[in-house]
């Protein structure tokens, strides 16, 4: 990629991809817990946020 100017892009691409995948999975886990998990405790706590973000709810 020719647009890489910052040091992050200079990191060995294997490490960069691994860190990217790790962040993607961790982020998805957070969003799943707040927005999608069927647990009653999580649902009731995050209820208003689920509606606010337009996540499928109920």
């Amino acid at each position: 990629m020719t647009t890489n100017t910052h040091s992050i892009a200079g990191t060995a691409s294997g490490t960069r991809i691994a860190a990217g995948l790790f962040a993607l999975v961790l982020g998805a886990f957070f969003v799943w817990g707040a927005g999608f998990a069927h647990s009653a405790a999580l649902h009731d706590t995050a209820h208003d946020v689920r509606h606010a973000f337009g996540f499928p709810c109920h």
Binding site: M1, N4, A9, G20, F22, G27, V31, G33, A34, T45
Partner: peptide, 23 residues
Amino acid sequence: ANLVTGAGFALMLAATALLTGRT
């Protein structure tokens, strides 16, 4: 829930930049 959602989406957006080699 907003904290967790915000952190989650921030991580996913940052991960997208990392995986596509952008900043």
